[in-house]
Design a protein around this nucleic acid. Structure first.
Length: 288
RNA sequence: GGGGUCAUAGCCAAGUGGUAAGGCAGUGGACUGCAACUCCUUGAUCGUUGGUUCAAAUCCGACUGGCCCCU
């Protein structure tokens, strides 16, 4: 049995995953692009050892923040684990907020090893787009350089196998946790303040002092903003406000992905009595 | 009490006679290798009220509110 738990950051996915793992004697696989990194704990709201309550967790803390870990690696590692657990007849819960990571794990996304990584600095966006369209039509917007570069890289690397991103490779049920937007924004605003109280600044300072500049740092919310603070580019208050704002933007994007790119059974979280939420999840799982 | 000044979307803000730039926030959306990324989309008739004018956010008056100065 595979249960997938998704939802925007801050709704309580971790909590639900632990409770369900206890009920179904399951192991948990991380479905979050940032929680794979060691030493990034407070800012990524990673499960603590105490919260784990003895449940086995996988794909957490497997990489040094200096290293780059991409969806290509995640899919490989994740499927290896999934296949192993299924063979052992173990129940698996996948939790996380990285929609594309989870989707690529469960659907027929085909990634290939690539030798080269061009940046095409000498080409304009328009030229890249034209170059791509010599081979096939694309919907990538002309302003979206990052995606254009990636697409042309695929072509230059001979990465031509088509994926079938609508075709699931496993049997699973996807549960999504949700709550109304205002409530969620209030929760994450408070959570950011709590992260600061819990020592986020020193967690990030340590990475900063070790001179770690990597993908994880540059994209992780809570990390990039505090780096700017340490670099004296912004004040601490500005950094904190930015973390909150970026988290809100992130939540919005998560929703559009979960609602449009995945098939999710949403549950409105009952924050007053979380047991109700657990029971609703159980019902969905058992109906499946 | 007198004088001055300002009043444009939730916030910041351009425009100074021809029917409202832009930014932020918020919203909706796209997304097969940075995905906590990247990108796209979207809003007002200008404090109220009278007047001048073919035409006013833009000029004049009154009122209301904010700020400053004087007594």
């Amino acid at each position: 049995m595979i249960v997938v738990i998704v939802g925007p950051t801050g709704v309580g996915k971790t909590k639900l995953s632990i409770e369900l793992a206890k009920i179904y004697n399951a192991v948990i696989i991380n479905g979050d692009s940032m929680q794979v990194y060691k030493d990034m704990n407070i800012g990524t709201a990673k499960v603590t050892e105490e919260e784990k309550q003895g449940i086995e967790h996988f794909l957490f803390d497997i990489k040094d923040p200096r290293e780059n870990y991409t969806i290509y690696d995640y899919q490989k590692d994740g499927r290896e684990l999934l296949d192993k657990f299924l063979k052992e007849n173990k129940n698996v819960i996948i939790v996380g907020g990285s929609g594309l990571y989870i989707k690529s794990l469960l659907y027929d996304y085909k990634f290939q090893n690539e030798e080269n990584n061009y940046t095409f600095d000498d080409l304009t966006n328009e030229e890249i787009l034209n170059e791509i369209e010599k081979h096939y039509k694309t919907d990538i917007h002309i302003n979206n350089r990052k995606r254009l570069v990636r697409e042309l890289n695929k072509i230059k690397n001979g990465n031509t196998i088509k994926s079938d991103i609508h075709k699931p490779l496993y049997n699973f049920i996807t549960i999504g946790l949700t709550t109304n937007r205002d409530k969620l924004y209030e929760i994450v605003n408070n959570r950011v303040d709590k992260m600061i109280d819990d020592g986020l600044i020193s967690e990030v300072k340590e990475l900063y002092d070790n001179n770690i500049h990597s993908k994880a740092i540059e994209t992780g919310i809570g990390y990039k903003e505090l780096y700017d603070y340490f670099d004296n580019k912004i004040s601490l208050d500005e950094a904190i406000d930015l973390i909150k704002k970026n988290t809100r933007h992130f939540i919005k994007r998560q929703y559009t992905f979960f609602e449009h790119q995945m098939e999710v059974n949403f549950i409105d979280v009952d924050f007053n009595n979380f047991n109700n939420t657990i029971n609703e999840a159980k019902k969905l799982i058992e109906k499946n």
